[in-house]
């Protein structure tokens, strides 16, 4: 439902950008058009519904004292602001510590947007700002989000954050904004360039290799093969959202 929308939006923006540049009015509408084009330009290439981006997290390899994925995410996506009340700050990815009170067994794992195939956030969003790309990546269009927070009510994973303060110093490739809701984008700006998400790269650099990113639809990909071989878990599988992030070892 969102795909054609998205396409026409990009088409329109392309035309608008050319028009604006041609008329020399780009400067009149600073932020708005330029940021939107920078965001829209990148995902344009190669978004195909043949691909389903996903992630496999091996909790047995995830170290409870390691925060490398979180730090990398914050750097990559420009989440550098400090908020007085930490409950009001954005967290696109966070480390969860689990403990089974009966056996005493503990796990540590990163929690992020699960990029649901049937995302409740997209279903409830009144404006269509929450959207799922053809390749399964769930995004918020920062220019149509009205900040109603209904998607936060609907998300079962607490994956979304509302921006509570004015933002400065942003990564131009990752537009964020006060009064809008945001969440993990699987580093769409990197994925569209053929790179892997910053958290996955950081985990490997820290020599934990607990995170694997790839195309769940491609039978030859490492992630698809591992999902076919080992027992993996979808968090809150009872909701039948067919999430794109799978866990191993819990």
């Amino acid at each position: 439902m969102t795909e054609p929308n998205d396409k026409s939006r990009r088409g329109f923006l392309g035309v608008a950008a050319v028009g604006a540049a041609g008329l020399g009015v780009a400067a009149i509408a600073p932020g708005f058009h330029l940021i939107e084009v920078s965001q829209a330009g990148a995902p344009g290439a190669g978004v195909s519904n043949k691909v389903r981006w996903g992630m496999l997290i091996d909790t047995t390899k995830c170290a409870s004292d390691c925060n490398a994925c979180v730090k990398a995410c914050n750097t990559e996506n420009g989440i550098t602001e400090t908020v007085k009340d930490p409950r009001q700050g954005s967290q696109w990815i966070r480390k969860l510590d689990l403990k089974d009170p009966k056996s005493g067994l503990t796990h540590s794992l990163p929690m992020l947007c699960q990029h649901c195939e049937h995302p409740p956030c997209v279903d409830v969003c009144p404006t269509g700002a929450s959207m799922k790309r053809a390749d399964g990546i769930v995004l918020v269009d920062r220019h149509t989000c009205i900040g109603c927070r209904y998607c936060m009510l609907a998300c079962p994973y607490k994956a979304r954050s509302f921006v509570h303060i004015p933002l400065t110093e942003q990564n131009p490739e990752v537009p964020r904004g006060q009064g809008c809701v945001e969440s993990c984008t699987f580093c769409v700006q990197r994925v569209d360039k053929g790179q892997i998400p910053a958290c996955v790269e950081a985990c490997a650099n820290a020599e934990h290799n607990a995170m694997l990113f790839g195309d769940l639809n491609d039978p030859n990909s490492e992630i698809a093969q591992r999902v076919a071989q080992v027992k993996t878990t979808q968090v809150r599988a009872d909701l039948k959202l067919n999430v794109g992030v799978r866990y191993q070892g819990i």
Partner: peptide, 21 residues
């Protein structure tokens, strides 16, 4: 709303799968 200035968007971009919509 976080972006009360966008209330027109709410009126013009209605997502019909949304109860809010």
């Amino acid at each position: 709303l976080g972006r009360a200035d966008r209330v027109l968007i709410a009126a013009t971009h209605v997502n019909l799968t949304s109860v809010f919509g």
